[in-house]
Design a protein around this nucleic acid. Structure first.
Lengths: 209, 209
DNA sequence: TTAATTATCACCCTTTTTTCGGTATTTTCA
DNA sequence: TGAAAATACCGAAAAAAGGGTGATAATTAA
């Protein structure tokens, strides 16, 4: 049981939506809307004074965009939980927001009660997001099943990505350095790259490892 | 609206739990439990015949473990949705399961109705998981705020991880190749590594980039 | 407000590693 | 019975790593 109201800041450029959220949240005893902003810049300036536990944040804002905003706010208050609330359900944006430090990502077609649930989830250490977003996030972990590489080559690539040299890879796989070299040459030609780090970059992008 | 019952397979070694699930699911018109197994090996053998859309899978099983099981099943039926249902809420296991191809991960303290919700979520293209798991997954995207590297060094490391050579990095940052080299040397000493790919591996592990 | 430290930039030389271009045998599997 | 994969070797050229040095700006600590 929480004894204090959760301090919430809202960053949202649509006046009606922003004021609406504030009204709803303030009507519930466990929440307390400290401040609301229609742009990131002002929110960043005041975040130290506002000391919110949770920030409800739109991404499409005039001036600084939401992703940069999240990054900046995180630099100032690393502990704050940021829930993105946007109309966009674009995979790049989702990953950018999460990487920048968002805890949750919910789209604007969700109902008010779901928004309240999302806030509760965050308070309880969760990471609220729509099913579709969750699926995208989970998919990003999964290997590409159509790898052009053979099993052995994948094994070699795995070791490469662990930072191992030719000699170490050879030792690990009980083959000669020259053989490791051969495998790597084939990997490069299949992935159309010509260095270890390029191979790792491509393999990571295409989730071959 | 779905017109056909979702074909479900259950892999769970506890007889009571397994039969319980099957009974509950079969009592609901939109589900149909094709088969149940108390081990991975048998499930793998029959997955082609069973043609499930969804597999409900325990991880602690006699014989082959659940992670390997997921990998094998995915090789045979790449489209099947696998929901892990286990008592363990260990981060390594979660990531291993997701990487191996699990779509959802729910722990065994969730109620039956939540389990049913999870199945529905999967049917509708979602990725069900508990708040705590979701938070772990989301956290895995977020940068480590306590990086030992300077801003410039992080920039260089970012380019390194994109597979760029010394000369390309220098060109991108409008510095000489020798300066890029200096930065890289410093990065190596701070991360205690001695090659590009080791640096990338360490940076990825510690989420410095 | 200094003094000290850190960050950024830049150069040189040597050694090691990697890359590129080949060739070639054996094993495995469809 | 082929084709692909895995194994192994060689030499030249290019890139990276290891060891230094040093200047200037910026930031932090005393």
């Amino acid at each position: 049981m929480k004894y204090f109201r959760s301090r919430i800041v809202i960053v949202e450029d649509n006046d009606a939506v922003r004021e609406g959220f504030a009204l709803i949240l303030n009507s519930i005893s466990k929440y307390y809307v400290v401040n609301t902003y229609d742009n990131c810049e002002d929110a960043i300036k005041c975040v130290k004074k506002d000391k919110p536990e949770i920030i409800l944040m739109d991404l499409e804002l005039p001036g600084m965009n939401g992703i940069q905003g999240i990054t900046e706010i995180r630099k100032i208050m690393s502990g704050v939980e940021i829930i993105v609330n946007t109309i966009y359900e674009n995979s790049d944006l989702v990953f950018q927001a999460l990487c920048a430090g968002a805890t949750g990502y919910i789209t604007k077609n969700t109902s008010h009660s779901e928004l309240l649930n999302a806030i509760d989830e965050v308070v309880n250490g969760g990471a609220p997001m729509s099913s579709k977003i969750a699926k995208m996030v989970v998919s990003s972990f999964q290997k590409n099943p159509n790898s052009p590489l053979s099993a052995r080559e994948t094994e070699v690539l795995e070791l490469l990505s662990q930072g191992k040299s030719y000699s170490l890879i050879a030792k690990d796989l009980f083959i000669t350095k020259e053989t490791a070299k051969s495998h790597i040459k084939n990997i490069y030609s299949k992935l159309q790259v010509n260095s270890k780090s390029e191979a790792i970059a491509k393999a990571t992008q295409e989730r071959l490892i």
